[in-house]
Design a protein around this nucleic acid. Structure first.
Lengths: 331, 331
DNA sequence: ATGAAAGCGCTAACAC
DNA sequence: GTGTTAGCGCTTTCAT
């Protein structure tokens, strides 16, 4: 598409009767420009409907106003909240977030990150610590700060902000054991691509094994985690093993589905059967019967990540690792 | 890791022993370049870890690869799904979506749109037909195609894709009346900023009035629509008017909250009390008892909007109005 | 098939 | 205070 660059800074300058530089300075409020000229330029810009060209500005000034953000999914409320936190933290800084979605696919992730880099962003925020070798090389060679979010279990390219999922799984196992649960099963989806969910599962399982109890059963599927899937898998699992007293799910959506099954099947939750999810979604707080969960500080993670980028920009020396300790909620 | 100097096309060309132009052509696959040189340039680019500069490319070629998208909220799954549709439709076209969030605030919306325009996008997709006068002026003066999504009830700047919310409200009213409901109330949140929800409410109310029944009660609050709020408002409304046989909500989240209240309060749904929401979220399909809803084609709207931008780009003559008819789901 | 020159719109770095 | 000059990295255009 050809851009009809109708009005440029030169047009504004001409109309105001000054040079391009004076117009530029007046519009940006930098340097010394006489009040009279500032007024003239502003009026000319407004009258002409002038909209600056960020492409030219960025190229010329060699400084970027973009912060690239790569998340695996947009239709997962968790990432939407992270983005929201990032957008908020960036507000007023003059920086703007650009989002890319990897669809949990390493090749797509590589393409998306490469594409972001070609916009010469001031920084990059990417989800997780597991990237392909090619992607890692790209990130290491990029001369921009890279913040990896959501996870702490592994090595960061530059900096990371998040929680330990292995620990989260372990902590939930302890809490369930402390509640007296003995026959504990696991239901998870998409572990092959959601490495953080897989880490939670491992931490959870190991904690049980350490206590000499072990996992009483499991149902692991590929594909997305939805309420409907959680409901179906719970029904299946309980058909096989009706004597379970606890199910840990890879996330809250599955757990909510599990609860809906129990409501229909008249199973007492949490009395007979304790359900536990992960994320601490609003949904869980409103469910008619308590489902345990681990609350994760999504907005805070987004904000902290954005701050790191801004700090680097300002020459500050931000932390290379920001660890949050998620809180267990067990109603 | 050594911090590398930014590698430009000139570096690649030098390393490959050709001119910048040959390198440029080889990398883009345009014009005639000898096989040998293509290979040399590709190898040089890969060895150097060259990442092109979109800022320079766009500025120089006067063509944009960006499509600006403005939504009121990111933490609302509905808009996340629209974005997802847009991103999908743009895949393989060489275009990339850039998102902006208005937070339902007209001034923020103006700023966001202005900011998007300064990136010289190939097109703009904005939510809704109601913008401030300043914003409309900006959109009309912008020489890019503008697609307004989600709503059809009003005048579009260029083109619009969505559903009629007035009609959706009307249709739901008819369906509830057809089911034999007589004492029908309404619960809504954030109507002051969500003009589409307000249009549904008006359509709904008018339909009831036309039938000589009228609204038996209403509870309208400012602020966000959450499951928790829906639960609380339903409890309040039913405390005042226990004889209602139907509640229409401004959306599914509120309706789900209403159902959770009813489950706790042992109210038979949908027998004694029919609940109805709007959007057709996955949540509703999985709820233990049926909640009526209007399914909206979010992804389709996103896809259609993106297609319009692409069509304009290709010189085609896309429709100026794409209307979807939402389907009522009444379990 | 390849290259040199001329910008795209803007701003940093100097003049004056 | 204001203007001039010289790019930013790339692609267009027009040579060869």
């Amino acid at each position: 598409m050809t851009i009809k660059q109708s009005i440029t800074l030169a047009d504004v300058a001409t109309k105001a009767g000054v040079s391009k530089m004076t117009a530029s300075r007046a519009l940006r409020g930098t340097g010394d420009v006489s009040k009279a000229n500032v007024e003239l330029v502003r009026r000319a810009a407004r009258d002409l409907g002038y909209v600056g060209n960020h492409l030219a500005t960025s190229l010329s000034s060699q400084r970027s106003v973009l912060v690239g953000v790569v998340v695996p999914s947009l239709t997962n409320i968790v990432f939407a909240e992270v983005l929201s936190g990032i957008a908020n933290a960036l507000e007023g800084s003059g920086k703007q977030a650009v989002f890319g979605v990897s669809d949990y696919d390493p090749d797509t992730e590589y393409d998306v990150i490469r594409n972001m880099l070609s916009w010469r962003p001031a920084g990059l925020i990417v989800t997780g610590l597991e990237q392909s070798a090619d992607t890692l090389k790209l990130l290491r060679n990029a001369e921009v700060p890279v913040v990896q979010i959501m996870d702490l279990d592994g090595d960061a390219v530059d900096a990371c902000v998040g929680i330990s999922h292995a620990e989260a799984g372990h902590t939930m196992a302890s809490a369930l054991l402390a509640e007296g649960r003995k026959r504990i099963a696991y239901i998870g989806c998409g572990l092959e691509r959601d490495t953080r969910a897989a880490k939670r599962f491992r931490g959870f399982k190991n904690a049980l094994i350490d206590e000499g109890i072990g996992l009483a059963g499991e149902r692991i599927e590929t594909g997305p985690s939805t309420i409907a899937v959680g409901r179906a898998l719970t029904a299946q699992l309980l058909a096989d093993q009706p004597d379970l007293d606890c199910i840990y799910y890879s996330n809250d959506d599955l757990a909510a589905g599990g609860l809906f099954h129990c409501l229909s099947a008249n199973i007492d939750v949490p009395g007979t059967l304790r359900l536990a999810g992960f994320n601490g979604l609003d949904l869980v707080d409103s469910l008619p019967k308590g489902v345990a969960t681990t609350r994760t500080p999504r907005r805070e993670i987004g904000i902290a990540a954005a701050r790191i980028i801004l700090d680097v920009e300002n020459g500050a020396n931000p932390p290379r690792r920001v660890a949050y300790t998620p809180e267990i909620h067990m109603p």
